[in-house]
């Protein structure tokens, strides 16, 4: 079956995110919202094929752990996985 998945990759909580901090500073300076805490990350949309849902999950997890994330720095979350 045809699979489409969406994955979010974000730095681990204890790794400082300078891009997120830059956005926070802008929010403070412009008075848009002084209280926001912002973390930035990456989004991936993946289309593939699998025999069933279990195999689909295995494939997406393998792609995430071996290519999309560095386990020393980042964590990922499969936001959505569905049959097309």
């Amino acid at each position: 079956m045809k699979i489409s998945a969406e994955v979010k990759v974000i730095l681990k909580d204890d790794i400082k995110d300078p891009a997120g901090l830059a956005v926070e500073n802008i929010l403070k300076r412009t008075n848009i919202d002084a209280e926001s805490s912002v973390r930035t990350g990456k989004f991936f949309s993946i289309k593939t094929f699998a025999q069933n849902r279990i195999e689909a999950m295995e494939k997406i997890n393998k792609i995430c752990t071996e290519v999309l994330t560095n386990p020393n720095l980042e964590q990922y979350e499969i936001i959505r996985i569905k049959e097309e």
Partner: peptide, 17 residues
């Protein structure tokens, strides 16, 4: 080398952006 796991640790964005 860090990405390959041949060296320990990782490198990421400079703190000063």
């Amino acid at each position: 080398l860090c990405e390959s796991g041949l060296l320990e640790g990782a490198l990421t964005y400079n703190l000063n952006n």
